[in-house]
Each structure stands twice: as structure tokens, then as C-alpha cells.
Design a protein around this nucleic acid. Structure first.
Lengths: 205, 205
DNA sequence: CCTGATCCTGACCGTTTGGTCAATAATCCG
DNA sequence: CGGATTATTGACCAAACGGTCAGGATCAGG
């Protein structure tokens, strides 16, 4: 959400660009790229529509800027897996970190879900580059652990998918989860316990 | 996709309503409720726009009819879990059936994903009723098995979530999956093996 | 205080969208 | 066949949408 502060920007630019990106996150995460309107974004940002378009040339440009800004944050937990750490603990810590992000940043989670449902038009470049790279690194680490018998052998990429899908599920499908579980329960806390159990059983050698 | 054939409908009504629902599935699954236009639906159905609106009064009505029609099919695999069967085999069969559905009916899967990302405006009624009931039944069956020590004890509802999220992931997030796995691989076949392994380890008492 | 650059907005424009309607064509049935 | 019902469409409408623009307000620096 905090924009990478470019140096040659006035205070006003910094403040308003951030207001706009914040409003855009609200609108895009709720309605998707096509569903969200510039008016919605402007209202959420507390600015006029032409003023929004003064800072970003088009709706698409806002969307792109937002995704670029947020992707780094979204991948951060995976970067923190430590090849020198205790294997099972490292994976479990990653799972919990990803789950916490889905809980703390549901809008961001939904934003990415929407983007990917559309076929990731804006993300494909990054998906093929940066993301691929960080995933490859993580796969190598996991395979190293499995080779040394420190972790049960499973297909590493599918292990990663399973973590992504289940943790995001709690944010993206919150409605469904709530409808099924009923009120008065804490889906994410229960999910944390379930996932800990699951990956412990799956990965203990 | 096949409409529940109401009796007092002419052949033309039956045919055209089905054409429309089919076109709507194409449009809604690709672009969501707000993103899809009646024109798109009409084109996909091979009918004129006013003619589409002759059969369904509004875009929302088409959407609602489509969800209602498809929900039954979507829940069918869960209904087939047999309380008298061998527990682990029953669960594994359900997992594979759900995965096959994500592969065979990706449009339907995406349709539901879109709907739920919007907060399930049209589904909430059904989510609180029919869905709740079938889930409750399945939970009871699972708990029975766990009580008798035939299945490892886990929170049954979260077990169900995990199945839903991971199987749907292969359809909804197909782009992401393909980008990470690279070409020349069969994500679903690999997923089937991974999931079989996972649930076997998780649920074997 | 002045001046140039930055910031902001009301009014406006062309297009798309959901939806209507009167008129015409096809179909059904006695 | 013939009349009534059903099916279909081109033309149209109001609202919403993405985006532009000229001109005025505000601000920073000398």
C-alpha cells in the first residue's frame, strides 16, 4: 500500500497518489478491473474524477501501478524461507505467514485473485519473470531438504500451490467459509491449527 | 448446463433458454457479473440482444438462473459420499471427483469463484440453506468415522475447505499454475497424485 | 509580492451499456 | 386455412462510463 517513494515527487503528489492507490485497492478488490469505476476510486480517495486522472492517465494505469506496488509485498514471506533453518519449522512458519497476510490484507488477496481469474493480463510478464525465479529458488531449497531426508518427499511446486490455495481461500472465499461455519467462530485461527496439523503430517519424514 | 426442464415450455423456449444460459456461462465465467455484457451473451448464444431479454428480464435474472441451475451439479459429488463405504477410500474418491470437475468444467468453477469473490450476493440464500445442509450431513459422516477410529481426527469442516480450495485452485488459477510449472506438464494429473498422497497421510489413523 | 509551475474542477464529449417498444415474422392449433 | 399466440428484431432511450479540456486556484521560490 505504501508507494515506493520516487524522489522527484512533491508532497502533494506523494499524498494523492497514495490516496488514489488506496481507493483503487478498495474498488478493484471489491469489483474487479472492469467492475470498478473511476468514480468509485475517486470517491474512495476523496478526490474528484478529473483529479484522479491528473495523476494517472487511465484506469488501466492505476490498476497496473497498484499490482506492481503490491506484488513485492505479496512475495516477501517466501523470500524469508531460510535454507539454513530447521526444514519443517521453516515451511510451517511460511504457511502461517501467508495465512496471516490473507487475514491482515484481504483486499490485496482479493485483488490478486481477481487478476488471476481474468487470466492475469497485467501480471503475465511478472509471473514469467520475478515470480518464476523466487519459486525456483524455493523449490531448490525444498528439494535439498528432501534429498537429505530432512523433509518427506512430495512434489515441491504442488506443495507451494497447496499453501497458496488454502491460505488465500480464507480471504477470498471468506463469505463461503462464514456461511458454512456459522457465526461466532474464528475461521483463520481454526485454519491455522488445521494447516499446522496437515503440513506436519505431510512433511515429517 | 442442462436446464431443469420445466414442463410448460415450448420446444423453442427450452432450446433458446439453454442457448442463453450456455452463452451466459461463457461470458460470466470469463468476465464476472459486471464485466459481462448482454451483447456478449447474445453473441455467444447466437441470438439478438432483445431476444435474450425476451426470455430473461434482465442480466441479473440470467445470472441467478445460471447459478441456481449449476449449483445442484456442483454439489453432486459430495452427495455421493457413502457412509457405509470404506472411509479413506470414500474421501479420496470425493477428492478425485471434485478435481475432475474442476478440470472438466472450468467455466463453472470460475463462475462460482467470481460470484464468491463479489461476496456471493446471489448465493447467500442457497449457501445458508441447501449447502449448509449437505455440508452438515457430510460432517456428521466424517465425525462418525473419526469416532470409530477409522479416520484420523481433524476438524471436518476445514477438511472440506481444504478439498474445495485445492481442487478449485487448478481451474481458477490455471494461468498462475501454468506460469509456475512451465509448459509440457499436466497440472491436473500431477495434482491428482499430490492430493492422493496428502490426504492419505493426513487421514490414515 | 510576483511569476511560473503545479494542482484542481465544472462542463463537456463520444461510446457503451442495460433495457424498452412497436411492428413484423413464425408457429401453433382448431 | 385463419386467427390467436408466441417469437424476433431494428430503432430507440436514459444512464453510466472513460476520458478531455480550458480555465481558475494554489503553491513554491526568488
Amino acid at each position: 500500500m505504501t508507494e515506493t517513494s520516487m524522489p522527484q515527487m512533491t508532497r502533494i503528489q506523494q499524498k494523492n497518489r497514495e490516496l488514489i492507490l488506496n481507493g483503487a485497492l478498495e474498488a478493484f478488490s471489491a469489483n474487479g478491473l472492469r467492475g470498478a469505476t473511476i468514480d468509485q476510486i475517486a470517491r474512495a480517495a476523496g478526490l474528484s474524477k478529473p483529479n484522479v486522472l491528473y495523476y494517472f492517465g487511465s484506469k488501466d494505469e492505476i490498476h497496473k501501478a497498484l499490482l506492481t506496488t503490491l506484488l513485492e509485498m505479496w512475495l516477501a514471506p517466501m523470500r524469508q524461507i531460510d535454507p539454513k533453518g530447521e526444514p519443517l519449522a521453516e515451511v510451517l512458519r511460511y504457511v502461517q505467514a501467508k495465512l496471516a497476510m490473507s487475514q491482515d490484507y484481504p483486499r490485496e488477496s482479493r485483488l490478486f485473485a481477481h487478476e488471476i481469474l481474468q487470466g492475469a493480463p497485467h501480471l503475465t510478464e511478472i509471473l514469467g519473470g520475478d515470480l518464476r525465479q523466487i519459486v525456483d529458488r524455493t523449490v531448490a531449497v525444498l528439494e535439498g531438504w528432501m534429498d537429505r531426508g530432512l523433509l518427506a518427499r512430495v512434489e515441491p511446486r504442488h506443495l507451494i500451490f497447496s499453501i497458496w490455495s488454502m491460505t488465500q481461500h480464507y480471504a477470498d472465499f471468506e463469505t463461503q467459509v462464514r456461511a458454512v461455519l456459522g457465526d461466532g467462530r474464528d475461521p483463520v485461527a481454526e485454519g491455522a491449527a488445521f494447516l499446522d496439523d496437515l503440513y506436519r503430517k505431510l512433511l515429517t519424514p
